[in-house]
Amino acid sequence: MSTVRAEPQPFEPHQARVTRDLSGLPTYGFGPKSPMWWGTLGFFVVEGMGFALALGTYLYLVQQNPHWPLAPIPPDHWAGTLNTLLLLASLWPNLITDRHAHAQDLGRVRRDLVIMSLITLATIALRLYEFTGLGVRWDQNAYGSITWVLLALHLTHLITDAGDTLVLTVLMFTRHATGKRFSDVSDNAFYWYFVVASWLPIYVAVYWIPRW
């Protein structure tokens, strides 16, 4: 019979039997080895749900209204298209940053981070400009509201990522740029993939569904 039943046992905290020594293990790791990577994934789920529900709201409102958009013309898509291209193009330097972080190549990581910081700032600037071409105010009707909400929701992610990247960039130029920071750089690159990926359905919803 293999069921384990409770046996009254005296408890002796210092009676430990050492079966293994872990001093040879590294003190940081990349990707799924690192708890921070999993934490980042957790935030993807939370924020991804936020995006999904906001997009769901958009589609729900499209369905509830006989006409869409609730404006004479659909939004001007050029700034958004440009931003989409910029975001897609940024995947390449982002990938490079991640590679150099894995290789713990401080010189290149510094350069890459500067480039990525500039890119995030540029996407923010473009996004702010996108608002001017929407042709509808947020308080005009539900169409205006949800359009602004979607763009603004994604903007907050651009801003958080920019803040994060800038602080990391500065950090990597100080004496704190030691081992574990490379893993942080890698996690930061991981987050950017999410920011770009979450934009694509929003781009389609905001700029192309009104043209359907």
Binding site: Q15, R17, V18, S23, G24, T27, S34
Partner: peptide, 30 residues
């Protein structure tokens, strides 16, 4: 007669064992 244990963690600063997802095989001293 007492739990088996591992050793090798720092006693100079806070350190804990990070292990793999399925098997809980030790991976890092973080």
């Amino acid at each position: 007669g007492g739990l088996p244990v591992v050793t090798g963690l720092s006693i100079r600063h806070r350190e804990l064992v990070v292990s793999s997802v399925a098997e809980a095989e030790p991976q890092l001293r973080e």
